[in-house]
Design a protein around this nucleic acid. Structure first.
Lengths: 215, 215, 215, 215
DNA sequence: TATGAATGAGGCTTCATTCAT
DNA sequence: CATGAATGAAGCCTCATTCAT
């Protein structure tokens, strides 16, 4: 029999494809309602499979959620990492990273919502997962910042770059939130804003100094 | 089973006292488990009253949560507002605001968690409440930043200060998160870090320029 | 302190007055929501007294409901009985009884609703109370009908008049229901309708014979 | 505790069968306690299934109750309608209708109780459902009565037949009630009684005129 | 493999009823 | 006498999870 909701309930797909289908559905539903309000019923429906299959492929609700977080985090981190590597100097690296970040969020709002909003809910299995991704993001940035000071008189230590990186990530998250309410701006423009705040600081901006990409 | 949570179940208290007791308990429990996972059962237990009283005084779970958000937001905003007003110039105002922010968070972790983490719940009554508080916080900062540029050649418009303020708030939130994992730092130190990031920017910091309070 | 809802919460009333106040309120609320949906809270509020007083005066919810049924039934039966006694012959007696019945219902809709609708709910203490009132009403009518046939060739026995009376009562109740949806008719007109149905029967009515009061 | 109500808890039945089981149980329980006092717990127990199934198949308590009313009303109306159609002239039609009515009630006391007694519940979804069934019953009878006067000098209009029909239905309901307390009578006899009351009227009966079926 | 059918467990909410002042 | 404060008990409903086919 065929499911009536557009996508035919295709059978006998290879496991990997099925799992991606399910994860896509899960991310969508988790983003829409949040972890607790999301129901396995809805996820299985959106994924186009029955609940027992859902459990067979990805385990319990908790495990499924962790899988979602993991996939989305990996994707985002990888995108940013690749972009950063392509930059020639720290400023450009940061700039590329920011740009990719905003682009990613724009094209993957559901995934971002799962990462940024839903994963914040306390609870045993999720905190660790979440802090791991935050740590990876932070250390990526922190390394970048550290490289920027390598040549200076007083190179920054991890103890200084790390909180800075964390703050930068937080600023980015908040700016995305602001962006959602002012969608008329382009991803590039958002990246520029954040770049300037971070790189120049407020006192410079007030005095008319700002950063611009050369490319 | 016997109640054994320290505070004796005192009886026949006047309404106002009970309401504060309940709000305290609710904030604690919401912070610990998040809105959905928190149960009215546990809240009433922690508050030391029966569930019917809980409902009689503060309404449904939704209403209770809104009341929590409202109280915590009001407290925080008021503390920051008062501190900012005491500053003589924009830099000092910002500095005082940041310091009070970190102090508040330190002494009121549960309340902060409710505001920062748990309020991200989908659903009608919460989004409006939450965005209202975010907006108040942001506009408080945005006004401060706007004042800072009043004398400059190109005074910033709301369109520029607002996202900056939002980013600043986000950076603060993230820094708090980092702080929780590095509790050896003092609130003052955290405020200093953020002040420098915001005011000086990264390029200045690299070159050894930094901001310090005069007081 | 004075209650703010119009009627001042007068204190120290004689017991009988209080009880009437309470019963009035109870009938009103039971009629509005039905027995189960009515809450003692609302009744005490409408009555203008506190709940402990409510319990002190009229006992539990069940007892209170029984008291309502009893009072309303007594009133109605008494009104009809008095009217019937004033009639000179059976037809006129019936006519007077019906007229009073419709008048009573019109002026006492809440009481009627309690009797007719709410008391039908099954449950231990109410069935007996309800069947007692039905029985009284029925036997009042049955006696009337019996008197009407006393002079005839084959006087009716209770076994014949009783079900007739029951049916008449039921017809009256149903007609009242119909009346509520067609309120443009007068009480007298309704009584006339029922009188004709009962007295003449359908075959007579079809052939143009009908009953009219002489008074 | 062990289930011990005779019917074994059979498992894995097809949906249609389960739905009938549930409706049967629901009618039984609603008839026994009334809508409000009936508990979904008891219904599911009597039906021999768990509560989640109850909800999955027939929705909330309100919806379940409406389904009960609808089924019972449809059954009764259909039975009477079929019987009436088989009659050759109005009197016989009425007679057949009444006979089927009493037979139906006798064999389906619970269903009748739900229709007659319990459906009188305040609240949106029920009033409409109930008045619809009453209307169908009434208009079925009213049409019959109208046909009876078609040939006469002054054919009755709906304004006259309708309240008559309503009263007839009410008389029937009340007679059923009386019957329950005098179960020694047969359904046929009850129908005869009502037929005579309605068709002949009291004055005719007093004078010895009565109606008898020819079949 | 795939699923319709099934349920234990638990959460929110309200109500009749009674203390303690 | 009068009441604000308090609660045990119960009802509706939903969800994550698993059989049995």
């Amino acid at each position: 029999m065929v499911q009536d909701n557009g996508r035919p309930r295709s059978r006998r797909l290879p496991r990997a494809v099925r799992e991606r289908q399910i994860l896509d559905a899960a991310v969508e539903v988790f983003a829409a309602h949040g972890f607790h309000a999301a129901s396995m019923d809805e996820i299985s429906e959106v994924a186009g499979i029955s609940k027992p299959m859902l459990y067979a492929y990805l385990g319990t609700k908790d495990e499924l959620f962790v899988a979602c977080i993991r996939r989305e985090a990996a994707r985002l981190i990888e995108a940013i990492g690749t972009a950063v590597e392509a930059g020639l100097n720290p400023a450009e690296q940061l700039w590329r990273g920011l740009r990719v970040f905003f682009e990613y969020v724009q094209e993957n709002q559901a995934g971002w919502s799962v990462l940024h909003r839903q994963a914040n809910v306390q609870g045993d299995p999720f905190v660790s997962e979440l802090s791991e991704w935050r740590e990876r993001a932070t250390s990526l940035i922190a390394a970048l910042l550290a490289r920027a000071t390598e040549g200076s008189a007083q190179p920054m230590q991890a103890e200084q770059t790390e909180p800075f990186a964390a703050a930068l990530v937080g600023a980015g998250e908040a700016l995305v939130e602001w962006w959602f309410e002012h969608p008329e701006h382009a991803a590039d423009g958002m990246a520029m804003r954040l770049m300037n705040m971070v790189w120049m600081g407020f006192s410079d901006l007030v005095e008319g100094r700002s950063w611009t990409p050369k490319s």
